[in-house]
Design a protein around this nucleic acid. Sequence first.
DNA 1: TTGAAAGCGATACCAG
DNA 2: CTGGTATCGCTTTCAA
Lengths: 342, 342
Amino acid sequence: MPAIGDVARLAGVSKATASRALTGKGHVAEATRRRVEHAAAEIGYIASPDAASLVTGRTKNVGVVIPFVNAWFFGEVLEGIERALIGAGYDLTLYNVPPGGDDARSRVFDFFLARKRVDALIAVGVDLDEHEVAVLDRRDKPVLCLGGRAPGAARLSIDDRAVAQLATEHLLHLGHTRIAHLAGPGAAASPHSVPGERRHGFLEAMAAAGLAPGGRANIVETPMTMPGGYAAALQLLGQPGMRPTAVVACSDEVAFGTMRAAERLGIDVPGELSVIGIDGHEHAEMFGLTTIEQYPEEQGRVAVEVVLRLIARGDEPDPLPDSGAPLPTRLVVRSSTSRPRR
Amino acid sequence: MPAIGDVARLAGVSKATASRALTGKGHVAEATRRRVEHAAAEIGYIASPDAASLVTGRTKNVGVVIPFVNAWFFGEVLEGIERALIGAGYDLTLYNVPPGGDDARSRVFDFFLARKRVDALIAVGVDLDEHEVAVLDRRDKPVLCLGGRAPGAARLSIDDRAVAQLATEHLLHLGHTRIAHLAGPGAAASPHSVPGERRHGFLEAMAAAGLAPGGRANIVETPMTMPGGYAAALQLLGQPGMRPTAVVACSDEVAFGTMRAAERLGIDVPGELSVIGIDGHEHAEMFGLTTIEQYPEEQGRVAVEVVLRLIARGDEPDPLPDSGAPLPTRLVVRSSTSRPRR
DNA sequence: TTGAAAGCGATACCAG
DNA sequence: CTGGTATCGCTTTCAA
């Protein structure tokens, strides 16, 4: 296994020069650099990142903490992050931290992330507490939250409240008045979580239309999955009487479940029930789902961009793009929403 | 940032003893060990994995190469692998290598994996060529394939051919004779790929029943996604005449798309069309899909088990469990298959 | 059981 | 622009 000394010897230079030539840091005569590079190629030299990390303190490795891999939104984000990191020459170390898995979670933060294996952390859809941030901070590892929050950490996200508000307004403008919301887990309990913000946006839009919901029967919480949405929608639509004419689902997957439940119950969409989702899921078009698109893969890309800036910074101010403006979203109207039937 | 020297000093021992006490390798008096551990805890000592790797050559890190993150099967496998690795104290470095992304792929193998950052590689659903294996081999990194193949590497997989055969037989036994197959991409071109093996199993079962397909019209290749299955099924079912009465889909997602297409065309499932999938997707129950389950998360777990054995081995023979028997699968009959209508 | 010292493989400072 | 050398933090002989 050739080391840099071998390269140096073969090229007839010192290790120092070989290093400079290979890393590109420091000045080396063009001719020398070529000789070194040739030598390296010839013996198949590959630098040891461990040795380099040991002295530089940088690992060219970013950690990603994510609550699910197998949910569309998170999978897209992860792919986006991975692509961008690889493109920048960084490795991605994956930590799956599902909600409620507190033991696994503290293990990740106190054992894995406390070591110096990563240069930074991207936390996707997770709220970090002070202790967790402190662990990273003490080691000078920048933290970037995508979607979630962490005390004192950089943060990138869409405006969840505004998005839910817009979704609701879309239905209101169509003439609906009996609108229900399928909220994510913990929406009522954690007002600053993604489900909480979306629920808030829904309520705000309803209130602004003078439709303060009597009782909470028209908000049902559900896991943000298709079977979750299916079950919740059955519950919501099953009883006749004051059945809603429209549903704001907290995610496209929940919306798909809702459409499926409607079908099961013989309720026509959009004739008898309008459904709007949030996400821009890749299946939305196929199902004709009206939704508010966000762009998770692109979000992953941007997150990497920001985090690399955070790593490289010489202490510039806020490295967030667009001075921290929310990430872009877009309403896409399809065939799952229409005016309520007379 | 405390180093092992600090721990040693505080505990009143040498670095050597501190190291032995902390790593558990080598004999240390019980009393001494406790003193060292106390000292370490007191100053918040955390070992530098880089320094350790530099001398041991082990990184406690396993690379995972996977073609998709955002497809149910692969997401499950990835979660299973992650959980098992973390449980064993290993980091997981993720490399997403989509089919056809040859540039990205060679970058991963020749740049990222050629370095000594990982102790082993798990390749999920990817075939590796000799060069790619050689890169790892030369560095003594074991390779384990899950689903795919690599020359000379350990391999774990279900029996794809038998699975497709069984799926087809299920339909045959129900009395179907006009059975179509929605195959994965490259099924005809690459007989040893997963889609290829499944296609083969389908054809074998058909031939065994004396139903050698006239023409290839009853095998359509499609991306293994729901929209893919939808489009392919529209094409397959759209023309009346010799429309099949049953479909073997190469995956559950394709099966879902097929069911959706049938619905769109007003074809009743299972009355006019039986559909069987392969995977055991978490939505299968909700859609009433008959399928052959495999257990991707569990497969991930087993893969980790094997790969850790590969890393640790003192050159024992075949470290595959069950002497290389195929991974378990199970037929689950639901409401998407029935006897053909008279 | 413990300690002293020799590396592991690179980078970076300081001279020249 | 280039070379010598200290250094990063740990593990591991080799002796005691």
